[in-house]
């Protein structure tokens, strides 16, 4: 697995929804078992093109997400490889019992795609801003939980999802992300990506999604101050790359997690669970601290919820200070 790190903090002209829609189009052309179920949001993610091409296999369940999840499970029982999309709020809270019982508990594979997680819900506001969606999926036995950083990584994930057994949850922003990776980057679900590392790392930043770019900015600022840190893109929250995490803990002695999610049930807590059991390590948590969402531009919200490079820098300094 090797990646081509760009990390220039520039926006990708491509929208992430196309990493899903266009990749699914390729997959559906190759494999007629693949089905796509949407909940009246095809126009938001450009998957109407799938419905046009394959009306039987790519279809609407309407604004009835709970039923859609059950339908997805039933389709899976007939041998279909099923993708289910809705906004992250509905793809988690609204469908939790059916996705838990009818799919996960029943041993049926459904690939849930939740769009606009956390602050990326922006102008749709607090009602559409899930800070707990991925955590809900972390709680279900046997699930795979993913928080991709950019177009290239999301595309690679969608390509691998047909082979992922069980219920998976992938959260992604519909619109443009900052480019982290260049073409030719390869990713494996379940393996974290080390973006910066040296022999003198004083702390490791473990992050995912939109926080990867913030972590790269934090890395640069800290480097300017003579502080060396490791940066790990932990885009698979579950199964967590424990070996990579434990090595970072052993090498650096301090971990800072950064997530566009509630710290109470997200990446930070998944990391803390492993560290507490296997290698107690100083940890600082950057993420949403027990608050609901609210309306506004993503930039405003990232400031408001302390999801900035500056917040990561401060957390790294706290963690290093705690090492004594």
């Amino acid at each position: 697995m090797s990646v081509n790190l760009i990390g220039k903090h520039e926006k990708d002209p491509r929208a992430l929804r196309d990493a899903m829609a266009l990749t699914l189009e390729e997959l559906m052309a190759e494999d007629k078992r693949i089905c796509y179920v949407d909940c009246d949001l095809m126009n938001c993610v450009n998957t109407g093109r799938l419905h046009k091409k394959w009306p039987e296999r790519a279809f609407e369940a309407g604004i009835a997400e709970a039923n859609a999840a059950g339908v997805a499970a039933g389709l899976a029982a007939t041998g279909k490889i099923v993708f289910l999309h809705s906004f992250g709020t509905f793809a988690s809270r609204r469908i939790y019992d059916p996705i838990y019982m009818s799919a996960a508990y029943a041993g049926l594979s459904v690939r849930v795609l939740g769009s606009d997680p956390g602050v990326t819900a922006a102008f749709n506001g607090g009602t559409h801003m899930p800070f707990e969606d991925a955590g809900m999926y972390l709680s279900i036995p046997g699930t795979t939980v993913l928080d991709p950083a950019d177009y290239v990584q999301f595309q690679a994930i969608v390509r691998q999802l047909p082979g992922v057994e069980g219920v998976s949850y992938t959260r992604f922003a519909r619109k443009s992300h900052i480019t982290v990776y260049g073409e030719g980057s390869a990713f494996t679900i379940g393996k974290g990506v080390t973006l910066h590392e040296s022999a003198n790392d004083a702390a490791a930043i473990v992050c995912s999604g939109i926080m990867v770019d913030e972590a790269l900015k934090a890395y640069e600022q800290l480097a300017g101050e003579g502080i060396s840190v490791r940066v790990i893109d932990m885009f698979t929250w579950k199964p967590l790359d424990e070996a990579l995490l434990l090595k970072a803990a052993a090498d650096c002695g301090a971990i800072v997690t950064a997530e566009n999610h509630s710290v109470g049930n997200g990446l930070g807590s998944a990391v803390a669970n492993v560290l507490a059991a296997k290698k107690p390590t100083i940890q600082e948590f950057v993420g949403v601290q027990g608050r609901f969402g609210q309306v506004g531009a993503q930039d405003f919200l990232m400031d408001e919820y302390n999801l900035r490079a500056a917040d990561i820098v401060a957390a790294v300094k706290r963690a290093i200070a705690r090492k004594g």
Binding site: A66, A69, V71, A72, A73, A76, P98, S102, A106
Partner: peptide, 8 residues
Amino acid sequence: LGISTAVG
């Protein structure tokens, strides 16, 4: 929940 899976 069961009826949704039957429908699926």
